[in-house]
Design a binder for these strands. Structure first.
Length: 508
RNA sequence: GGUCUGGUGGCCGAGUGGCUAGGCUCAGCUCUGCAAAAGCUGCUACAGCGGUUCGAAUCCGCUCCAGACCUCCA
């Protein structure tokens, strides 16, 4: 593989079977990149005016796995995930005010101070859940010039008009020659009936029109000069601008949460097409579904979202206890991204136990010795078959729940071999190791969590001493001492597991 | 009101014309000094009513229920 000159040859043969559920066509389609081996992917990132909640995490986790898998297949992926640091309206009655500007005033901070704080928080959370950083993480405020440029293109093409220092996209005009609403299945005449009292409604030629540029009044904190006066960019524009800038006018994958489908993504398409004319700027749209709590969407306005800190400590009225980040990651991966996932204590606890069994088998693999074929010993199943099933699962629209099921089949093999009940060659052991490393580690992004926080060698040594003492007590049939060691360790959260050839231990 | 998802065993969740994932729980067994861990076995479901079919949980129609979007939200 030549890093300077990547070619198709670098891409795995398994890549040809990858199918993606395209929300534009509402069908599963075979994934064929525009310019293999390069793949361009854009994902709508967070608005950094408050802490991220778990619903956000789920979406970014979905695309983390997509990213990881494409990279694993050998594609050269440019993954762009923006930071929205300006531009969204508040949900309150003070219409038209910039969310971040408002927050800044409330807390008496500079807008960019707010942005920085929550951007840092966002990055910390991503790290905690082992979500990889994107290739480029552009900000809206860093692309004001480009946004103004795109507005000018749209105006020049006749799809936008200026009114009183603001610029609006002319949806009706656009719909005369283009298919507005194709992504979300909306028809313009039905939308027409939904009139709302939004700020600037009187400036619009039609209630369907949306803002590309908004005039800023004197009290507005985030403001930039433009050909139309002092103002700030519209809600949907940044994504059109930044995807075009970094991925081109047509690119492979665009992702985001289901709730962005309309109007955000619909507007994005209209802006791209209105500016550049390409019919389908995005070839594959992927929408992640919502996380619910007791059947209700987790959202900022409902107040039923957990922060990662509350989740880990269990310090929230809806949580019975804390759950580790890996437990949460695993829990989310046990459901398919396109379906809703309901967050509940029993479900989380089931995931916690399941993950523990999976990770403990994976751990066992490090020192697993091959077992010879012999009478009365079962022989191992076809390990290439396991690997093929794992690829098939991921190739079927990133079906992580099925992949996890395959991994559990591997868990059974590992445990059986470890117990001396199943035969496995050295190559077989190696093949299992690679299965776990590739699919469990590289693709699902699971990693061993230890609650030690320190000197692993020393811990191993101390535990070794205790296990030896207990073994000696057991040899002397001194059950009281043996049980004392086991129980005292259990109180500290260390679990003793007696096996055929020795004792192992794990932290809770 | 419009658009769109979905209703699967005790719980969570895949699948989607025949062979009926997986995890957790529960019960029994093996192993064990006892336990834990591990393995084996059992619990066998697809909201309701019609229809298509040799055959449907899977396709079609209707009904009921839930959720999302239509205003910022991942």
């Amino acid at each position: 593989m030549d890093a300077q000159n990547p070619t198709e040859a670098a891409v795995s043969p398994f890549a040809t079977d990858l199918h993606i559920g395209n929300s534009l066509s509402r069908k599963k389609e075979r994934f064929v990149p525009l310019n293999s081996p390069y793949v361009g992917m854009y994902v709508c990132g967070p608005t950094v005016y408050s802490n991220v909640h778990l619903g956000n995490v789920r979406t970014f986790l979905t695309f983390d796995v997509v990213f990881r898998y494409l990279v694993h297949l050998g594609y050269r992926v440019r993954y762009v995930r923006n930071i929205t640091d300006v531009g969204h309206l508040t949900g309150d009655s003070d219409d038209g005010e910039d969310k971040i500007g408002k927050k800044a005033r409330l807390e008496n901070l500079e807008p960019m101070e707010v942005v920085q704080r929550y951007t840092n928080d966002f990055h910390d959370v991503m790290r905690v859940f082992n979500i990889l950083p994107p290739s480029i993480e552009p900000t809206a405020t860093g692309h004001i010039v480009e946004q103004i440029g795109m507005i000018e293109e749209i105006i020049a093409n006749g799809f936008a008009y200026e009114a009183n220092g603001s610029v609006y996209f002319n949806v009706r005009k656009f719909a005369e020659s283009h298919d507005y609403g194709a992504l979300s299945g909306r028809k313009i005449d039905e939308l027409q009936n939904q009139t709302r009292a939004l700020d600037g409604q009187d400036e619009k030629q039609d209630p369907l029109d949306f803002a590309l540029w908004k005039k800023a009044d004197d009290s507005h904190l985030m403001r930039w000069p433009s050909p139309w006066g002092i103002g700030f960019p519209g809600w949907h524009l940044e994504c059109s601008v930044m995807s075009t800038k970094y991925l081109g006018r047509t690119f492979d994958i665009h992702g985001g949460g289901m709730d962005l489908k309309f109007p955000h993504h619909e507007c994005e398409i209209a802006q791209n097409v209105g500016a550049h004319g390409e019919k389908n700027p995005v070839r594959y749209w992927i929408h992640g579904n919502m996380l619910t709590v007791n059947g209700r969407k987790m959202s900022k306005s409902e107040g039923n979202g957990f922060t990662p800190d509350e989740l880990i400590t269990g310090n929230h009225k809806l949580l019975e206890k804390g759950y580790s980040p890996m437990t949460v990651r695993f829990f989310m991966l046990q459901g398919h991204y396109a379906g809703t996932l309901d967050f509940s204590n029993p479900a989380l606890q089931a995931a916690e136990k399941g993950l523990e069994r999976l990770m403990s088998a994976w751990g066992l693999l490090a020192e697993l010795a091959p077992v010879e074929e012999a009478d009365g010993i079962e022989s191992a199943p076809d390990l290439d078959g396991l690997r093929d099933r794992a690829y098939a699962a991921m190739n079927d629209d990133f079906n992580t729940p099925i992949l996890i099921a395959v991994l559990y089949d591997a868990v059974k093999v590992v445990n059986s071999v470890a117990a001396g009940r199943m035969a496995l060659s050295a190559e077989g052991v190696e093949s299992l190791r690679s299965l776990f490393e590739v699919f469990g580690g590289d693709i699902l992004g699971l990693e061993q969590e230890t609650s030690t926080g320190g000197d692993d060698d020393r811990t191993d040594g101390l535990m070794g001493v205790l296990c030896d003492l207990r073994a000696e007590a057991k040899a002397n049939k001194d059950w009281a001492t043996a049980d004392l060691i086991r129980d005292r360790l259990a109180d500290m959260g260390v679990q003793i597991k007696d096996g055929k050839d020795g004792t192992s231990w794990t932290f809770d």
